[in-house]
Amino acid sequence: MLRKLLPLLLSLAAFLGGAAGGEMLRGSPIETGAAAEAAAEHAEGAEGGHEPGAAATPASHGDAAEEAEPVAGAHPAGHGAPSGDHGSSAGGHGAEEVPATAWFEFPQQFLVPILYDGRLDSTMILTLSLEMPGTARETVHAHEIKLRDALLRQLLIHANTGGFDGNFTSEAQLRKLRASLVTAVRNVVPEISDVLIGDIGRQER
């Protein structure tokens, strides 16, 4: 009897085992698909969360760049101001400065004839310059002809009174000559301070 039932029991066990195995196989794909969908959703969520962060980062850098722009714009302006100061300073240096002391040399020498008994004996040759404050330079230039006339007149007086006789280069004679010449030019331009004798010589006939 047992031998007859054993094949049936084995067949039933095999059937039940196959059914159970099929159910297990069916459940596995479902679970696997659900897990895959969950993983995909998780990945999408992760990507979605990362994108805003990534987008926010450039935005923050963009804001920083926009905030930096006014500072960068203000920097050249700051440098521009000293540039203007230098320009005004350069303009100040460009203005002509008036020297404290100036000199004027007559372009032509003074020729003074020395006469004896109405005859020309020799000729004195002098180179003269004028010393003055810088502010009087233009005035002296404007009165050059009058100053030359005043000097020549005084040189003739000096020659006719014997000032060029003998040792006319002695300190006493030159001091007297300068004093008379200074007085003559100050009658034309009072600001003149001195008359300088650059050259003095006597040319015999």
Results as ranks from 00 to 15, higher is better:
Ser129Asp: 14
Thr57Asp: 04
Ala13Asp: 02
Glu69Cys: 02
His158Gly: 01
Tyr116Cys: 05
Ala36Pro: 00
Pro82Leu: 02
Ser122Ile: 08
Gly91Thr: 08
Ser180His: 06
Ser129His: 13
Leu174Ala: 08
Pro7Ser: 14
Ala172His: 03
Ser193Gln: 12
Ala95Phe: 08
Val185Ala: 01
Gly162Cys: 02
Glu66Gln: 11
Phe104Val: 05
Pro70Val: 04
Gly198Gln: 03
Asp165Val: 06
Glu171Trp: 04
Thr101Val: 07
Leu2Thr: 04
Gln203Met: 09
Thr169Gln: 14
Ala14Gly: 06
Gly18Glu: 02
Val140Ser: 08
Ala81Asn: 12
Leu12Val: 05
Arg26Phe: 15
Glu37Gly: 05
Gly27Leu: 15
Glu144Trp: 00
Ala95Ser: 07
Glu138Cys: 07
Ala72His: 13
Glu37Thr: 09
Val185Arg: 03
Ala19Val: 11
Met1His: 07
Ala172Phe: 03
Ile157Gln: 04
Glu105Cys: 10
Ser129Val: 06
Glu66Thr: 09
Ala56Leu: 15
Ser60Cys: 06
Leu25Tyr: 15
Glu138Phe: 07
His79Pro: 04
Val195Leu: 10
Ala95His: 13
Ala38Leu: 14
Gly80Val: 04
Glu96Asn: 11
Gly163Pro: 09
Leu126Gly: 01
Asp199Gln: 10
Gly87Asp: 13
Ile200Met: 09
Ala59Asn: 03
Ser28Ile: 02
Ser170Glu: 06
Glu69Lys: 09
Leu9Tyr: 12
Ser122Val: 11
Ala72Arg: 13
Ser88Ala: 14
Gln109Trp: 00
Gly91Lys: 05
His141Ala: 14
Ile157Leu: 11
Pro99Val: 08
Phe164Arg: 03
Leu8Asp: 14
Val189Leu: 03
Glu191Lys: 10
Gly18His: 04
Gly48Ile: 04
Met132Tyr: 08
Ala35Leu: 04
Ile125Asp: 12
Ile30Arg: 05
Asp165Trp: 01
Pro99Ala: 14
Ala38Val: 10
Glu131Ala: 12
Ala46Gln: 02
Gly134Pro: 07
Asn167Phe: 00
Ser28Met: 03
Gly198Pro: 00
Glu44Ala: 07
Gly22His: 13
Phe164Gln: 02
Leu10Trp: 08
